[in-house]
Design a protein around this nucleic acid. Sequence first.
DNA 1: AAACCGGGCAACCGCAATAAC
DNA 2: AGTTATTGCGGTTGCCCGGTT
Length: 244
Amino acid sequence: MGKGRAPCCDKTKVKRGQWSTEEDLKLITFIQKFGHENWRSLPKKSGLLRCGKSCRLRWINYLRPDVKRGNFTPEEEETIIKLHQNYGNKWSKIASKLPGRTDNEIKNVWHTHLKKRLVQSSKTSPCSSDSVSFEKDEKSQAEDCLNIKTSQDSTTSVSSGSKQENDPSIGLLLSDIIQEVDKPDLLEIPFDSDPDIWSSVDSSNSVHQSGANEFRAEEESDEDEVKKWFNHLENEPYRLMMIH
DNA sequence: AAACCGGGCAACCGCAATAAC
DNA sequence: AGTTATTGCGGTTGCCCGGTT
């Protein structure tokens, strides 16, 4: 177990705050081509003026192809509540049981919705207390309260209401991507929607001005794929808030 | 119509764990 | 075996937006 914590980046030289469309595109394009074996060096190689941690977070929580967006279904919420009783604030652990959901998203949902709901219902149900001590006897508590199938080991999601899930073809393709995404140069972007929206992005040129000369040469066909994927992201309700 | 307020969410911070040397 | 680099995780912050006054 090591000690010593190196600063993750020079904070005076990195951009912070909301990600722009161009930055997202750069990140997606880069990861699609080269994967993300080294987050620290990724910003430099991709031409992003971002901290590696920021890139990682953006990818994991937002840009990853398998990330599921939109409202949580009642089933998902129920699952989170029960898993929280089991694991406490181990958001990543909980997220691992909910395919397509990120720890950050689950954490937010917990704090904004579920916690309140639990407080209200805590008087009536012994299994729904927010203050359950999960440390002691986790397992038995889990067994008691957790009669849910946590074995959605792949794309069989508990959710039934999300956009993604309503489109089986997309779901299937995404599951393929999930398996590929950690392997550089294997990521396929499966969407074939109209990339009109990208005209504005195209004109910005930012991707081609990046420092990633290595992949600059690899042009339009790949980039089209990225745009298609990105366009898909934009079509999801919540992303419209961010990208306009 | 403007100001205020609170909810919701994305992103940041910093520590812990792990890998690499 | 010790040190350093990197990644992962959970807590927290701050911005945006819609609702209310």
